[in-house]
């Protein structure tokens, strides 16, 4: 360990937690499920950290429907999402699949939705699914609160657009929509693995079955979730058939992917098309 922990603090209220983060700014690190913290620790990436502030007891573990959307507390675990039937509805299915695809059961028991977003790691699944679902996040500090689109929370690898004294308190998803479905797919080397690349997709059709909206997100193609606008540009107002899918496949991705240790940009480009096609078909099947 390249850091020396002075204390592990488990505050009981949000105010208390925010005050600790404020007072120890720079030396305090939020810990939720700790699954990424553990990895950072092993890789000597926690230099300067002296305090862990555990946010498990702040009352941020909830899922509730309000009039402005579906609110998911930051410390809600992946298994709580997987076991809540709300998320198997087509509008939220992408999130369900992303959470369920995280191995293993033990990790899903502790890993939280907030921790996943705040890690800002390009190959994590849940953040990419959230961006596909147009999610917003609420962030709170002693200076007040802000609501951001989730895609605006990533500056780069391990570099979230979140201040050290801020806590992400909840994720807000749009209310369920009709003629809408979503899907998430990842390509991995082994049965349980991080994504080589992934695709999150949400489609809304109009009454006649034409595309009203499509939002597509590619994971691990850029250091932050990549919103592929090309898909909507091509499909807007159209009926999706094999020809259209082929056409889209030719045009995506509209960005040169980053190389990874296990896959080059060349490979990512090739398989993204296939992954997108399969994810889109699955999505459409759920609407009809």
């Amino acid at each position: 360990m390249h850091y020396e922990l002075k204390d592990y603090i488990k505050p009981k209220t949000l105010e208390e937690a925010l005050k600790l983060l404020h007072d120890y700014k720079g030396a305090a690190k939020i810990i939720a499920g700790g699954t990424v913290i553990h990895e950072l620790s092993e890789r000597n990436l926690l230099e300067g950290v002296e305090y862990f502030v555990d946010i498990e007891n702040l009352g941020l573990n909830y899922v509730r429907i309000e009039k402005d959307g579906l609110h998911i507390g930051a410390t809600t675990t992946f298994n709580q999402i997987v076991n809540n039937s709300l998320f198997t509805k087509p509008s939220y299915y992408a999130l369900y699949l992303a959470a369920k695809g995280v191995s293993s059961y033990q990790v899903r028991n502790v890993a939280t939705i907030g921790g996943s977003v705040c890690s800002s790691i390009s190959f994590l699944d849940v953040p990419n699914a959230l961006v596909a679902l147009n999610a917003k996040a609420k962030l709170v500090s002693l200076n007040g609160e802000r609501i951001e689109n989730v895609e605006n929370l990533f500056l780069g690898m391990l570099n979230p657009n979140i201040s050290e004294d801020e806590i992400l308190t909840e994720i807000i998803l749009p209310l369920e929509e009709t003629k809408t479905a979503s899907y998430y797919m990842k390509l991995t080397e082994r049965a349980f693995d991080y994504a080589i690349v992934s695709v999150g997709i949400k489609v809304k059709l109009n009454e006649n079955g034409y595309v009203e909206n499509i939002r597509t997100v590619f994971g691990n193609v850029q250091p932050t979730p990549y919103i592929e606008n090309k898909v909507y540009e091509i499909a807007k107002g159209k009926y999706i058939n094999e020809d259209l899918i082929k056409k889209i496949m030719e045009e995506i991705p509209s960005v040169e992917p980053i190389d990874s240790i296990n896959a080059s940009a060349w490979y990512k480009k090739k398989v993204l098309k296939v992954l997108f096609r399969d994810a889109l078909k699955e999505t459409l099947e759920m609407i009809s």
């Binding site: 990895e39 092993e42 080397e189 082994r190 049965a191 349980f192 296990n262």
Partner: peptide, 12 residues
């Protein structure tokens, strides 16, 4: 490390 060095998993 075991995160990046890929060993077969039971499910495979």
């Amino acid at each position: 490390n075991f995160a990046d060095y890929k060993l077969i998993q039971h499910a495979d």
